[in-house]
Design a protein around this nucleic acid. Structure first.
Length: 425
RNA sequence: GGAGAGGUGGCAGAGUGGUCGAAUGCGCCGGAUUCGAAAUCCGGUUUACGGUUUUACCGUAACGUGGGUUCGAAUCCCACCCUCUCCGCCA
């Protein structure tokens, strides 16, 4: 949620900034309902005040044994008018909340304006794509050779966008997750967490998946209770601080988790249908930081570096992209994507996305920290980033480290998790 | 699945219709005392929202949630949610 003060005090300017990311705010409608809110709320509170003071007077009068009939007559009818005002106010505030919940975060001033990914700006590149002296295979071919990667089995068990991994490739997949988790906990100072994959609606609302993006989620229903499968561990990790007031010494709070992620991928029919680029179920090592407001942009850079180091240690060429206004997620004010080189596609493909959500999620979650300077609670800033997507990292390793015979060299940092193997054949 | 207990401030824990946003204790912050500390004493210590003359003041709301009764609800009534304990089952 945006700061309501922005919508009240700087409506036109705020609407203009939202327009750069393709969100059109109906300012006239908002202004009208806001004016009504102010009037009804003020009036409601006046009625409440009157009722409270009169009721207290009745109590005091009765205590003295006086006749209260006159006072009672005075308050007659207040209750009905008050009730009417209160329900009217509740309606207005529901409408305002629904409106506010649907508004995305404001883009940071450093974010380039654009409508889609073609306007994203490359920041830098690392590594040199390998030159092959044989015809490169893509991860599907490489995986099929030994039954390592089996899309048909995934379809049989579940449907499209599910796959089965077997043997040494399954182990390599596991090794990648282990390596990333050990790197972030051991060298980057993130606290390892193991989190629920199934969460309630409040949690989904806290990070912005609900109410707007329900169709992207898998859900469970037990009795009357509806819960949701997380699309990213960011949901569980960030909501850990929901409704909390953190001590200043607890910040920055850096957490990481290796988890399964579930996405319905509604609206991406026909995209990336080959192989395991885009799955309903995949694994990711997620990074989350909770910071003070003044620290969040520095933390954003730090977090992105932590993700880049994963790729550098694995020897995978990548580039960092600064997303334009139109390509960012709902909650983000600024996002860096890391794109890894895929030889079979002769291009860079997204493998990580690191976003600063400023106080947007924190306001929804009422996640605050206490500023010792004035003792007042202030909203935290929340950041999340993939560090990195495990399935896509597996694809990148397969394709970049393939040999002419279809075997795959194991990047040095993973060998310790592979029983010392230098190559899987 | 069966049986029971319980949800009040940072924590513990009072409060069963009337200045109760809430006793008391602990914790925490400030001060006094002290060479310093402990102990002791004094004062302070929730959050959100709204308004205004905006480092301040005033108002409103919140005792699990939502309804109801009432001039007035932490307290009475109804429904729901959650947590805990024991038994059963289970990784």
């Amino acid at each position: 949620m945006l700061d309501p003060a922005l919508l009240r005090g700087q409506l036109a300017e705020t609407a203009q900034r939202l327009a750069t990311r393709g969100y059109i705010l109906d300012t006239a409608a908002f202004q009208a309902i806001e004016t009504q809110r102010k009037q009804v709320q003020t009036q409601t509170q006046e009625w409440q005040n009157l009722r409270n003071t009169r009721s207290k007077a009745i109590g005091a009068s009765k205590a003295k044994g006086e006749d209260t009939a006159a006072l009672m007559a005075e308050v007659a009818g207040i209750g009905d008018r008050l009730k009417e005002n209160e329900s009217q106010l509740a309606q207005i505030q529901d409408r305002l909340a629904a409106l506010a919940q649907g508004i995305p975060n404001l883009p940071h001033e450093s974010v380039p304006v654009g409508s889609d990914e073609t306007a994203n700006v490359e920041q830098h590149r690392w590594g040199t794509p390998r030159v092959f002296d044989f015809a490169v295979r893509d991860h599907v071919e490489l995986g099929a050779r030994k039954g390592w990667l089996d899309g048909d089995a995934g379809v049989k068990l579940s449907g499209a966008r599910f796959t089965v991994l077997r043997g040494e490739l399954a182990r390599l997949h596991r090794a990648l997750a282990q390596f990333m988790l050990d790197l972030h906990t051991g060298e980057h100072g993130y606290l390892e967490c193991n989190i629920p994959l199934i969460v309630n609606a409040d949690t989904m609302q806290g990070t912005g998946q609900l109410p707007k993006f329900e169709e992207d989620l898998f859900a469970t229903q037990v009795g009357d209770t509806r819960r949701y499968l997380i699309p990213t561990a960011d949901v569980s990790l960030t909501n850990l601080v929901r409704e909390d007031i953190l001590e200043a010494t607890a910040l920055p709070l850096r957490m990481t988790a290796h988890s399964l992620c579930f996405r319905a991928e509604a609206g991406s029919y026909g995209r990336d249908t080959r192989g395991m680029i885009r799955q309903h179920q995949f694994e990711k090592v997620e990074l989350v930081s909770i910071t003070q407001a003044v620290d969040s942009f520095a933390e954003h850079e730090h977090m992105t570096r932590c993700a880049e180091i994963v790729l550098e240690r694995l020897g995978l060429p990548y580039r960092r992209m600064l997303l334009c206004t139109g390509d960012m997620g709902f909650s983000a004010t600024k996002t860096f994507d890391l794109e890894v080189w895929l030889p079979s596609q002769n291009t860079y493909r997204e493998i990580s996305s690191c976003s600063n959500c400023t106080d947007f999620q924190a306001r929804r979650m009422r996640a605050r920290w206490r500023n010792p300077e004035n003792g007042k609670p202030e909203l935290v800033h929340t950041l999340n980033g993939s560090g990195v997507a495990v399935g896509r990292a597996l694809i990148a390793v397969m394709e970049n480290y393939q040999n002419a015979d279809g075997s795959i060299a194991v990047p040095e940092p993973l060998r310790v998790y592979m029983g010392g193997a230098q190559c899987i054949v």
